[in-house]
Structures are given as structure tokens and as C-alpha cells.
Design a protein around this nucleic acid. Structure first.
Lengths: 163, 163
DNA sequence: CGCAACTCTATTGCACGCAATTAAATTATG
DNA sequence: CATAATTTAATTGCGTGCAATAGAGTTGCG
């Protein structure tokens, strides 16, 4: 039983007018959650053909972003940064290793931990990734300021949903 | 060969200062794509415990939203609205059918098409979904106006990425 | 009519994403 | 010191998401 709370508490009660308003807004196109969901998938689809040249999937690219920035990291730290657990990361990292992008080694001091580090060819991929990012940034049509503003709003939204 | 274009064209060339700017921004936390990705996952995680009571997963909930709003729909129309193909929808709809939420039947006029329609219990789920949506909307901390503004910006972003 | 091209859904194979469990290593506790 | 509790990764099972393919049905064109 590791799950925080199954949240079986009753939902907040609604007045009749509240219920009416929420009911009217319960449409796919009006849902913020779907707009976020669809935008995330649009990003993934836009990245996919470009990342194929680097022999990376989109989630693998996110892991590489962290490694390019931070250097060698443990699986736990990667999981916290990406909100992913070992059930997702373990096989993903093995594929990155098979592709020759990263290496895994057990920490000598604490053998439970696995440190993931870039191979030279994995580190070299960053130069190509800069071009891929520039291409996507161009496609969004957003100025850097717009993108930063939207990013910060989404960050706040995420914080609120996780709280 | 159904894929539109493998996009093997060369990426746009960058001047040295451009490359410098994009390189500096190539960080997980500064990426708009990751902010969108993380917010989408935060929504899914927030919805999950609430949707469990309705015996729905989040993607199944999106299908139900369409059916509640539009009535019986074909698999193709569902796929276009959600940007999903039959490889995802066919098994998903079968699970909805097994759960007793929907029915599938071949169209009499065109036997290639499958029409998905709500069962009475599936239609009745909408009342509970209103409460779930209200709970999530409360959790976001966004006013309806804020949510609508953010939703529209994300819609534009999606359009740009798909164009 | 007859055959080719097209449409629509289903299936297969692979890569996430996550809950639950397992196994190994480390730390805390008596 | 020995054992229990905790930490960390890996594994298993299920539900997407998508490319590629298959297969049945329909349409177009001579």
C-alpha cells in the first residue's frame, strides 16, 4: 500500500447553478485538460521525425536534456525531475544504452544506485539537438517571451494540480 | 507509404548568435514542450483517482466526453476529434464495451463503419462526471476566464505545431 | 459487369506510463 | 551484532499511442 490516498472522499457538493455551469462546460473542446493534452501530443508529433535522426524518442530526448545539462545522474534523480518511476525509466535507459548514448554503472559506495552518464557520442548529440529545438521553436510561431510566459503559466497549473 | 513526409529535409541553418541563444535555452526547465508535457501528465494524475470511481481511464473519459456531447459516432470521427488512430481506439472502445459503457454496431448502409453509442448506464455516468470536472477545476485554482484564455493559447500553439 | 483504387476497422509490434511486487543493499534499532 | 525497516532499481501486467499491415467493404472507371 504505497499509494498516497485513493481519494475516496466524497466530491465537493455543488449548488444547482454551479452544477449547471460545470455541466455546460463539460465538452471536449471547452476542456482545458484536453487543450493541454492535445498540445502535448502535437509537440511529440512535431519532434518525432526530427528526433528520429538522432535515434531518440521524445521521452528519451527529455532524459538526454537532463544529462546534457547536469552530467551523470542516478535513476532516482532522473525520475524526480521527469516525474517518472523506475518502471518507465529502467527499460528506457536500457534502450538508450543499447543505442550507445549512455552508460550505466552501479555506484561503488552504494550498490543500490545506478548512475547514468553520457557516452562521447551521446554528449555529441547535443549539437544536433540545438538545431532540432530551433526548428520546433520556429514552428510554434511563439516569440521567446510568449513561450516563457506560457511555460510559467503551465508550471503554475502543474503545481496547483499536484498540490 | 502513408506517412506524409519523413522530414529528411535539412534543418534551417542558424547564425552563430542564434545557435548560442537556442543552446542556452536547451534545458529541461526552460522548455515549453516539457511544461506542456508535465501539465498534461499532472492533469492525468489528478483525474485518475476520481475517474476510477466511474470505471474509466483518462483516454476513455475523453471518448465519453465526445459521446455525451455528440451522441453516436463512428470510430473515424472519434479518431479525428481526438487525433487518435484505430490502433489506439479499437482496443480502447472494446474495453469501454466490456465495462458496459458503450455499444458497437456495424453500420447497415456501410458495413466498414462501426458506430459507437452509449448504453443507458454509460449515458448516466455523465452526471457523476460533472462532479469530477468540478473537483478538478477547483484544484487548478484557475478562474473560468483564466482557463479559457490558457485553453485558447494552447489551441493556437497546437494549430501552429500541426501546420 | 469487372477489376482496380480507395476507405474503414482491426491486428501486430514496439515504446512509454504507472501500480504493484520483488530483490538487493543500506540504515536504524534493540 | 543481529534483525527489522527503509531505500533503490528492476520486473510484471495492463492500458495507451502509433507505424505498419491486413482484410473486408465500397466506389470509380472502362
Amino acid at each position: 500500500m504505497k499509494r498516497p490516498i485513493p481519494a475516496n472522499d466524497p466530491l465537493p457538493a455543488l449548488t444547482a447553478p454551479e452544477r449547471e455551469a460545470f455541466s455546460a462546460a463539460l465538452t471536449l473542446d471547452r476542456q482545458l485538460c484536453f487543450a493541454v493534452h492535445a498540445a502535448a501530443h502535437a509537440f511529440q508529433r512535431a519532434y518525432k521525425p526530427l528526433l528520429e535522426r538522432l535515434n531518440l524518442t521524445y521521452p528519451q530526448y527529455l532524459v538526454m536534456l537532463l544529462l546534457w545539462e547536469q552530467g551523470p545522474m542516478g535513476v532516482k534523480a532522473l525520475g524526480e525531475a521527469l516525474t517518472l518511476d523506475s518502471g518507465t525509466l529502467s527499460p528506457l535507459i536500457k534502450r538508450l544504452e543499447q543505442a550507445g548514448h549512455v552508460e550505466r554503472r552501479r555506484d561503488a559506495a552504494d550498490e543500490r544506485q545506478v548512475t547514468v552518464s553520457l557516452t562521447p557520442s551521446g554528449a555529441a548529440l547535443r549539437d544536433e539537438a540545438v538545431g532540432v529545438f530551433a526548428a520546433i521553436a520556429g514552428k510554434t510561431g511563439c516569440s521567446a517571451e510568449d513561450a516563457d510566459g506560457l511555460r510559467d503559466r503551465l508550471h503554475s497549473l502543474r503545481q496547483a494540480l499536484e498540490g
